[in-house]
Measured scan of single mutants.
Amino acid sequence: GATAVSEWTEYKTADGKTYYYNNRTLESTWEKPQELK
């Protein structure tokens, strides 16, 4: 079936920290989303 993983994109900030952005909800988070675990 369809999965929600594709909504999240992993980015890195200029200082090398990783964060996650959800293209559907426009939410961003420092925590790894449940969908990616």
Rank of each mutant, 00 (worst) to 15 (best):
G1Q: 13
G1L: 14
G1T: 14
G1P: 14
A2L: 13
A2H: 13
A2R: 03
A2V: 13
A2Q: 14
T3Q: 14
T3M: 13
T3G: 13
T3R: 00
T3I: 13
A4H: 12
A4P: 13
A4T: 14
A4E: 12
V5P: 13
V5A: 14
V5M: 12
V5R: 02
V5N: 11
V5Y: 14
V5S: 11
V5K: 07
V5Q: 11
V5I: 14
V5F: 13
S6G: 11
S6W: 10
S6P: 11
E7V: 07
E7G: 05
E7S: 05
E7K: 03
E7T: 06
E7Y: 06
E7R: 02
E7F: 06
E7W: 08
W8K: 00
W8I: 01
W8Q: 01
W8H: 00
T9E: 11
T9L: 09
T9F: 08
E10Q: 08
E10K: 04
E10V: 11
E10F: 04
K12M: 12
K12Y: 10
K12W: 06
K12F: 08
K12L: 11
T13I: 03
T13H: 04
A14D: 09
A14S: 11
A14E: 12
A14H: 11
A14T: 10
A14F: 05
D15I: 03
D15P: 01
D15S: 09
D15C: 07
D15Y: 05
D15F: 05
D15W: 05
D15G: 07
D15T: 08
D15H: 05
G16Y: 01
G16A: 02
G16V: 00
G16N: 04
G16I: 00
G16T: 00
G16F: 02
G16R: 01
G16W: 01
K17L: 11
K17V: 10
K17P: 01
K17R: 14
T18I: 11
T18M: 05
T18P: 07
T18G: 02
T18N: 05
T18W: 05
Y19C: 07
Y20I: 00
Y20G: 00
Y20E: 01
Y20A: 00
Y20M: 01
Y20H: 02
Y20Q: 01
Y21A: 04
Y21V: 15
Y21K: 07
Y21E: 07
Y21I: 12
Y21C: 06
Y21D: 03
Y21R: 05
N22F: 00
N22I: 00
N22E: 01
N22S: 03
N22H: 01
N23D: 10
N23E: 10
N23P: 06
N23M: 07
N23G: 06
R24K: 15
R24A: 15
R24C: 09
R24Q: 15
R24W: 14
R24M: 15
R24S: 14
R24D: 11
R24L: 15
R24I: 15
R24G: 09
R24F: 15
T25K: 01
T25S: 02
T25I: 01
T25L: 03
L26N: 15
L26Y: 14
L26F: 15
L26M: 13
L26P: 02
L26T: 10
L26K: 15
L26A: 13
E27T: 06
E27P: 00
E27Q: 09
E27G: 03
S28F: 15
S28G: 12
S28M: 15
S28H: 12
S28E: 09
T29W: 04
T29C: 03
T29R: 09
T29D: 01
T29H: 07
E31Y: 08
E31G: 04
E31A: 07
E31K: 05
E31V: 10
E31F: 08
E31R: 05
K32G: 03
K32S: 04
K32L: 10
K32M: 13
K32I: 10
K32Y: 06
K32A: 06
P33F: 02
P33Y: 03
P33T: 02
P33I: 02
Q34L: 12
Q34F: 10
Q34D: 15
Q34E: 15
Q34N: 13
Q34I: 11
Q34Y: 10
Q34G: 10
Q34M: 11
E35V: 07
E35K: 04
E35Q: 09
E35A: 11
E35P: 07
E35D: 10
E35F: 06
L36F: 12
L36V: 06
L36K: 03
L36Y: 12
L36C: 05
L36N: 07
L36H: 10
L36P: 04
L36A: 04
K37F: 15
K37P: 08
K37N: 14
K37W: 10
K37S: 15
K37V: 14
K37A: 14
